[in-house]
Amino acid sequence: MVSPVVVGVDGSAESLAAAAWAAREAERRDRPLRLVHAWAWHPRRAEHETANAAQRQPARRALRRAEDRVRAECPRLRAVDAQLEGPVVPALLEAAGDADVMVLGSRGPSGFTGLLAGSVALGVVARATCPVVLVRADGEAADGHPPAGDGSAPVRTGHGDVVLAVDVHDACDEVIGFAFEAARLRGARLRAVYAWRTAGPVGLGSGDIGLVRDSRQGEEWLGFLQAVLQAWRDKYPDVEVRTTAVADKPTTALVRASTGADLLVVGHRLAERPVVPRTGPVTHAAIHHVGCPVAVVPHA
């Protein structure tokens, strides 16, 4: 069975943007598309049968709106839909269990434009075992290059880069591989970014390079970054790669590098028995503050 691209929809502008993004991604990946809507269920069905029935109607409307958006975006793409009953985050996680990619709208609860991800999106990202892409309603236009009709590689059309956040101390094949494949599918350039911190006067931190001048440290870190990516550049010779090692906070570097990008790819380490599932600080900041779609790729 071919793993689908799964998108959660709720009728909001963000979820419609997510549906459009997911449709284009399904075409690029030659995957089926599954639209899902999750709503809270009442366990004591005899008492709440009317309430359950009332929730199905708006769920149907949300799915219909998403289907219309998908048909407008990708007329030849076939999509299936489903209503999921249960607590929303667990229901979406179950839907993501066999997914190639899960796509969600990124919406903050506060109205502050600097806080983009809502509690449902964060809950899914923290626990999902497949890549999760968060899409903004106002960020959907920058979405790579459409697949060619004859199945050949897409032609570059001036869209933005795929940006990859790399930790040279803990580089993960799952994250790097996802970014290279995303760039290949879009005909886009891949920009790999590593942010390093200058050693303080007290002494060098763990893993810091003991060179005196910042410029020389930058050269060393850039060399490490290029070495980490070399095997992937050999595997994807048609993907243009730009590497950047910058002395800055990781979150600041990623927000800056992602301006005008098609996609930012970051990693998320899955804990074996998390007390409270959460993302790391860099990934958490990126999905709250970066304007382009953000792909969070889980890894061990």
Rank of each mutant, 00 (worst) to 15 (best):
147 P>Y: 13
218 G>S: 08
162 V>A: 07
229 L>H: 08
204 L>G: 13
222 L>Y: 05
233 R>L: 04
230 Q>G: 04
232 W>T: 04
140 E>H: 04
187 G>V: 11
180 F>E: 02
170 D>G: 02
187 G>N: 10
219 E>P: 07
159 H>R: 15
212 V>T: 14
176 I>D: 05
165 A>F: 06
171 A>C: 08
215 S>Y: 03
149 G>I: 01
209 I>G: 04
173 D>E: 14
217 Q>W: 12
202 V>Q: 11
189 R>S: 10
195 A>Q: 04
166 V>M: 04
158 G>M: 01
200 G>T: 10
157 T>R: 14
173 D>V: 03
235 K>V: 11
187 G>F: 03
180 F>A: 05
155 V>T: 15
212 V>Y: 13
205 G>H: 03
161 D>I: 01
191 R>P: 00
152 S>H: 05
150 D>V: 13
183 A>N: 04
150 D>I: 13
167 D>N: 12
221 W>N: 14
200 G>K: 07
215 S>E: 15
200 G>R: 09
199 A>H: 12
161 D>M: 09
191 R>A: 02
190 L>Y: 00
159 H>S: 14
187 G>D: 11
140 E>Y: 00
187 G>K: 01
187 G>H: 08
227 A>S: 09
201 P>Q: 09
187 G>E: 06
214 D>W: 07
189 R>H: 11
180 F>G: 04
158 G>E: 09
193 V>T: 10
188 A>I: 00
217 Q>Y: 09
231 A>C: 09
225 L>P: 02
197 R>L: 10
180 F>D: 02
167 D>I: 04
140 E>R: 09
235 K>R: 15
140 E>A: 11
200 G>P: 06
148 A>K: 09
146 P>K: 12
179 A>R: 01
175 V>E: 01
161 D>F: 01
175 V>L: 05
209 I>W: 09
170 D>I: 00
235 K>C: 06
200 G>V: 08
231 A>L: 03
233 R>H: 08
145 H>G: 15
208 D>G: 09
176 I>F: 05
236 Y>N: 06
207 G>N: 08
176 I>H: 03
167 D>Y: 06
228 V>G: 06
206 S>G: 14
232 W>L: 06
182 A>P: 06
198 T>S: 12
217 Q>S: 15
140 E>N: 00
192 A>D: 02
144 G>Y: 00
